[in-house]
Design a binder for these strands. Structure first.
Lengths: 343, 343
DNA sequence: TTGAAAGCGATACCAT
DNA sequence: ATGGTATCGCTTTCAA
């Protein structure tokens, strides 16, 4: 940890007591003569003094730090939210430390422990799975402020999230409204928001009185990368009868899908409609601009931070968990249109 | 910071001294009878004991933590590296805390101070600017392990970085070799690797004995987003005589450029060749797969971590700074070809 | 084997 | 106005 400058050092150098130095340096209360103040401040600057946050927090019992756990650093949706959250937290006087879990449940548990051991005052998290939340629920029950940034309201834990079910339902309704009857759903791993997305998919079908074909619901081999979308297409198009539209659970998947279509001379949206989720930046810039569902990062980060502040300030007895769910907008571009009538 | 379980609590509960509890819980040295050990461990588990890292580090004078400062959380090149670095650091028994600066120099300084105050044992950084490094140099001079993840060798501070100059030179040589004589260079802000990239651009021209036209070197209004690339195109194509190729300092810019070309019925690469830097995932999936320069994240993270370990272990007297520069590969796809002969 | 005591760096309370 | 002293939670001698 090295030879750092401590209060003691600047006390020695100036001849004042550690105490006086501490008081001066933190601009705290009593009236210290200008002279002393200047001497001490000069010494501190000269020595490049930086308070030891560990020691400080140990006694103050406050770290003014919150942790944010990200399941995937490569997902711009998550990192954007993290960035926004960090900024807003800073405005409230809180530091943020980010921990990444690489979508690994064990690493998630470890990150949580590390963060807690470091005494962060609250934790925001994009969990690796919507299904395994018990450790978080337990944490919250023990009185620790924890806030989920994705998931469905469960009542056990605070949540500020996009309403994936609603977004999915809107999108699928749009497709159904266009006349599609065979809509493939490419679910990127059973893990995350996709349970809700599938639920919306189902709900839309029901509302339209259209029967779903389970063989149209596929899971890509791995992750939600463009690569993975690309690789899944052979399977998707092997289903008979062929789908007339395909809904990818993430725009990144759709990117791969579009590429595949191009290579196989499949016109989008002429031969096949394609839609995604997230509205990442490139979605608007693709060869065929993508119809998708927006991701309300700004609203999520804003509400999450607001809620987190009340949780932190309620020190000790947390209010009962609350769920805020933000309804996303449909973003209609040109990758979807009515199916041609020749099957 | 709340009502946490301390050694004291489990000592009280079991009747042993704090000391014994501490020794047992950390599996440390002396031979403790199985009986005591079990009692204490059971109590710890029951109480959900988690050691206070602040207190622990305060006395041990070690945090086994390194900080990584990212200028931009939205750049997949940076976040990928961060992810890889975090994993490798974990294998060495170190935790990583990530701080984002949103490309803001002041926030960068603040992040550095916060990290240091938290006693991280070393700092890895993608600085906001290649030009303002004095604070980092000063830090390093004071004996703090700091490692730059981008930049040109300056000898003042450790560096593990892509060789942007070489990458740029290769790419521009490729274009020149194809017969292009008017190659626009879209520099995303004077800030980062672009000094080196421009240098490579210049070097290639010199090597080919081709005069550069300064009016072909443009700076987009803001950042290196697709949006920004798109917006710059009007200016690029207004230069007379028109360029036959355009080199964007980031693939993300190129995405916007390609979109603009499509909207303006400009064929790529028929009418205009387009190239970028980074080889981000979508570059291979675009309408016109992009010729670009790869970014060696794996090599960078590996070498950076290796170097960092020796810096940390040399506790006290750091070895003189070293620069490692990794030569990137040219990735030739289909967005560039020889210019048509009709100007 | 187990425990008492000192100390890490900073803060806060109470004197002076 | 300035300084002593106890304390935060834990580790580390050093005794017993």
């Amino acid at each position: 940890m090295s030879h750092r400058v401590r209060l003691k050092d600047i006390a020695a150098k100036t001849g004042f007591s550690i105490n006086t130095v501490s008081v001066v340096l933190r601009g705290s209360s009593p009236k210290i003569p200008e002279a002393t103040r200047r001497i001490i401040e000069a010494a501190a600057r000269e020595l490049d003094y930086l308070p030891n946050a560990l020691a400080r927090s140990l006694v103050s019992q406050r770290t003014r730090t919150v942790g944010i756990v990200l399941s995937n650093l490569l997902n711009p949706i998550l990192t954007l939210s993290a960035q926004l959250i960090e900024q807003q937290l800073a405005e409230h006087g809180y530091d943020t430390v980010i921990a990444a879990t690489g979508n690994d449940y064990l690493r998630e548990r470890k990150a949580l422990d590390t963060l807690r051991a470091r005494q962060v005052e609250a934790i925001l998290i994009y969990p690796t799975s919507h299904a395994r939340l018990d450790h978080l629920v337990a944490l919250r029950r023990s009185g620790y402020p924890v806030l989920l940034l994705t998931g469905a309201p469960a009542g056990e834990i605070d949540l500020v999230s996009i309403d994936n079910r609603s977004g999915s339902r809107k999108l699928v309704s749009h497709l159904l409204g266009l006349g599609h009857r065979r809509i493939a759903f490419l679910d990127a791993g059973q893990a995350n928001g996709n349970l809700e997305k599938f639920d919306g998919y189902r709900a839309a079908h029901e509302a339209f009185g259209v029967a779903m074909d389970p063989s149209l619901v596929l899971i890509p081999e791995a992750g939600s990368s463009a690569q993975s979308g690309y690789r899944s297409m052979a399977r998707v198009m092997a289903v008979a009868p062929k789908p007339t539209a395909i809904l990818a659970s993430a725009d990144s998947l759709a990117v791969g899908i579009l590429r595949w279509c191009r290579e196989h001379a499949l016109d989008v949206p002429g031969d096949l409609s394609v839609a995604g989720f997230d509205d990442i930046e490139i979605s608007a810039f693709l060869d065929v601009p993508l119809t998708t569902v927006s991701y309300p990062s700004h609203q999520i980060s804003e509400q999450a931070v607001a809620r987190l502040m009340t949780l932190i300030e309620s020190a000790g007895d947390l209010p009962p968990p609350e769920s805020v769910t933000i309804d996303p907008d449909l973003v209609i571009r040109s990758s979807c249109r009515s199916p041609t009538l020749t099957p």
